[in-house]
Each structure stands twice: as structure tokens, then as C-alpha cells.
């Protein structure tokens, strides 16, 4: 098997790598690029701890081939905070003790961000079904669901404030039309 050369964008940065055709995107991220924030809990698409976005779509990086991502845009946990400013979800997870061991946390954060980008006002049931592809063995999900709901509430408040200031520039949530995450479509 000869290696493949791939040019892609990860968290907004241009990245080049070589990999074997049988390597998953998760293998590439972790073993070739040293981005170990995405975790491998199963390698078979069942746990969600490897969640990343591919062109805004939520996917399990263990089910995507590394060789396939050329020309696409990948978003990982390493790109979630802006500089030293945590994403509101990260902040809420921290404050709300929504992690115990923390191995599932990157996956939940990526998945939750994908949800809130589509729906800033999810019901508890919507949150629970959206996150059903992410396993957590420590928390019983209670504090995770609360953290996501609380973040959504804060984001709605912030959006209402900014739209009250300049009603003309009302921003609709990004990627509203993006397709539903691959693993949720099944």
C-alpha cells in the first residue's frame, strides 16, 4: 500500500500530511498530526468520542478515511476555543461539572456545538436524541444536558441583545441548512 498525500484545512489552517489508504481520519489526527484531543473509544462509530466536523457536518472521524479529506474543512476540539477564550459550551461544561473523567468531553462538545449551530432553542428531548451518538459512562448525562441547554439559553439571550441593538444585522445561526450529521442520519 503506498501512502497518499493529502492537503486539507483543519481548524482554519492549511495542513498537509501523508497517510496509508487504510488509515482513518482519527488515526491521522492522533498519530500523524499529534492532535490527540479527539479520542478513540471504539473505532467503530459507536461512541462518538472521536467526533469532528467535516465541512460543518458532524461525523465520527474513526469512520472517515484520512485519504478522503483532501480539499475539505475539518473542525476538531483543538479549534473550539478562540485563543484563550473558551467557547461558551466549553465554559458551561467546566462550570457545570459536565465532565468527570473527561474522555468523552471533546466529542460531546463538538457534537453539542453542531447542534446549537442548527438549533439555538432545542428541547431537552432534542438535546438527548442529538447526543445519543456520544457515550458517557461517568456522568449519567444529567449535567451534560443541562450544560448544553444553559449554553443555548445564554446564546439566545446574547443574540436577542445584539439583534435589539442593530435589528437590521440580525444574524441567523450559521450553517442552518447544513445536512444533519452523518451518524444521526442512520
Amino acid at each position: 500500500m503506498s501512502a497518499v498525500h493529502v492537503s486539507t484545512k483543519i481548524n482554519g489552517d492549511d495542513v498537509e500530511f501523508v497517510c496509508r489508504p487504510d488509515e482513518s481520519l482519527l488515526d491521522v489526527l492522533r498519530d500523524r498530526l499529534g492532535m490527540t484531543g479527539s479520542k478513540e473509544g471504539c473505532g467503530t462509530g459507536d461512541c462518538g468520542s472521536c467526533s469532528v466536523t467535516l465541512d460543518g457536518r458532524l461525523v465520527c472521524s474513526c469512520l472517515v478515511m484520512g485519504a478522503e479529506v483532501g480539499g475539505h474543512e475539518i473542525g476538531t476540539i483543538e479549534g473550539m476555543a478562540q485563543g484563550d477564550k473558551l467557547h461558551p459550551l466549553q465554559q458551561k461544561f467546566l462550570e457545570g461539572a459536565a465532565l468527570q473523567c473527561g474522555i468523552c468531553t471533546p466529542g460531546f462538545l463538538i457534537a453539542a456545538r453542531a447542534l446549537l449551530e442548527r438549533n439555538m432553542d432545542p428541547t431537552e428531548t432534542e438535546v438527548r436524541y442529538w447526543l445519543a451518538g456520544n457515550l458517557c459512562r461517568c456522568t449519567g448525562y444529567d449535567k451534560i444536558v443541562r450544560a448544553v441547554m444553559d449554553t443555548a439559553k445564554d446564546m439566545r439571550k446574547a443574540a436577542a441583545k445584539s439583534s435589539a441593538k442593530k435589528p437590521a444585522a440580525k444574524k441567523s445561526p450559521a450553517k442552518k441548512t447544513a445536512k444533519k450529521g452523518a451518524r444521526h442520519a442512520a
Partner: peptide, 11 residues
């Protein structure tokens, strides 16, 4: 742990 920086066993 929320930024993916924490190093677990396989990291």
C-alpha cells in the same frame, strides 16, 4: 479537558 489538551493513556 474541555480543550482536548489533557493527556490520557493513548495520548
Amino acid at each position: 479537558k474541555v480543550t482536548g489538551r489533557a493527556r490520557f493513556g493513548a495520548d
